[in-house]
Amino acid sequence: MTSQLRSPGSLLAILAALGLAGCGQPQSDETSAQVGAPPARVTVLSVKPETVILVDELPGRVAAFRTAEIRPQVGGILEKRLFEQGAEVEAGQAMFQINSDAFKAEVGSAVAALQRVEAGLVRAQGRFDRAKQLVPTNAISREAYDDAAADVAQAKANVAEAQAALQRKNLDLAFATVRAPISGRTGQALVSEGALASVSSTTPLATIQQIDQVYVDVRQPASRIDAIREAGRSGQLDDASKLPVAIVAASGKAYPVTGRALFSDISVDPGTGSVTVRVEVQNPDRILLPGMYVRARMPRGVRHNALLVPQEAVVRDPAGTPQLVVVDDRKRAALRVVGLGEIVDRRYIVTSGLQAGETVVVQGQERAKNDAVVDAVPFSATAAQAAD
């Protein structure tokens, strides 16, 4: 009887023990999983000192290297246009023909006038030669001899005057053919055949622009020039005035040409506070045309031993302070506050808080807990750019 009463209690005790054991087993497995979790995988980059060129991308306008307006030097009716509009022309090439009949007639008249005074010179010279022979025998007065000498001098002056007049008439005849003053590309003809060409007209016959090399006039803030000079004096940056200037389209695409900075203007625009910098660009394929809006990447200094990290490596706290996750030799991650400079090719220049040779996390910072061991994988900039 006693044995039968004890059996249910024993069974309950056994079941209770089994239940407690069953509840405790999952808790033990969870703890074990936490303790044995693998380290977070991150991509890292070892920072090495580099030499970088700092540039300012500034707006600019293209201007022709030389511009010449074709204007007549004599008046008359235009008979012919001797060039193709928009074509390349050479200096001295005939561009327009003005009716030259009147100028030819004037040349003929000047030739006749020259012959007349030359004949007068021959006559005066003969008289002088005879008077010179008679002077020793006193067969002629001294006054007559002086008059003969003066007539020769007068005749020679008349000949010189007639020669100058003929030369001027020949120039007018030559000017009837209007020629290109410079080599370059023509625009449209502004005057058609049959029009009256006038020396006093305000409208040119056409315009020629030399664009095998061009100028790009860039607007640079005057404050930036002061900063560049100060950085150069302090030794932070080396002079970059001799470095080539890249020319970029408004869309951001770089043109296959480079230029060199010639000079900065000596005055500041009071309206914009900027200074004009003129850049000379070789333009053999005529890619850049006068009036085009472009952007010029102006080198303003060379920085040596600069430490650069990709932009995605930088994280910020709620206050906006820049930070980097640095991995030490034991694969432990640590959050570090750093100072940032400018962006060069999608990378920040780190000015403080980082040493050369240290390893920073580029991707996966959210998985790298402070003082936690991480699984570091080398970062590939090429792969990251391809993914972007």
Rank of each mutant, 00 (worst) to 15 (best):
258 T>E: 15
277 V>M: 15
295 R>G: 02
292 M>S: 10
311 Q>D: 12
253 K>Q: 15
266 I>V: 12
274 S>P: 07
293 Y>L: 13
320 G>A: 12
304 H>Y: 08
269 D>S: 11
266 I>K: 13
298 M>Y: 14
250 A>Q: 14
264 S>P: 01
261 A>P: 00
269 D>N: 14
267 S>F: 01
319 A>P: 06
290 P>L: 09
258 T>I: 09
272 T>V: 06
272 T>W: 05
322 P>T: 04
278 R>Y: 11
294 V>T: 12
320 G>T: 11
298 M>V: 15
298 M>L: 15
289 L>T: 12
267 S>H: 06
283 N>D: 08
267 S>D: 09
279 V>M: 07
300 R>T: 07
297 R>C: 00
315 V>K: 11
252 G>A: 11
290 P>I: 08
265 D>C: 00
252 G>M: 11
255 Y>N: 06
300 R>N: 05
263 F>I: 02
318 P>I: 08
306 A>C: 05
266 I>W: 04
279 V>Q: 08
303 R>C: 00
289 L>N: 07
279 V>Y: 04
299 P>H: 01
322 P>G: 06
307 L>R: 01
267 S>C: 00
279 V>H: 08
266 I>E: 11
318 P>A: 13
284 P>M: 09
307 L>K: 03
276 T>S: 09
305 N>F: 07
305 N>P: 00
322 P>C: 04
254 A>I: 05
281 V>Y: 01
271 G>H: 05
277 V>Q: 13
282 Q>M: 12
298 M>P: 07
304 H>M: 02
292 M>E: 10
304 H>N: 11
318 P>T: 10
275 V>I: 14
307 L>V: 10
272 T>Q: 02
257 V>K: 13
316 R>Q: 11
250 A>C: 01
275 V>T: 04
301 G>M: 08
314 V>P: 08
289 L>F: 00
314 V>T: 04
296 A>V: 11
304 H>Q: 14
296 A>C: 02
322 P>E: 01
280 E>L: 14
322 P>F: 01
283 N>W: 05
273 G>F: 00
315 V>H: 03
306 A>I: 02
284 P>D: 05
277 V>E: 12
257 V>W: 12
271 G>A: 15
304 H>F: 01
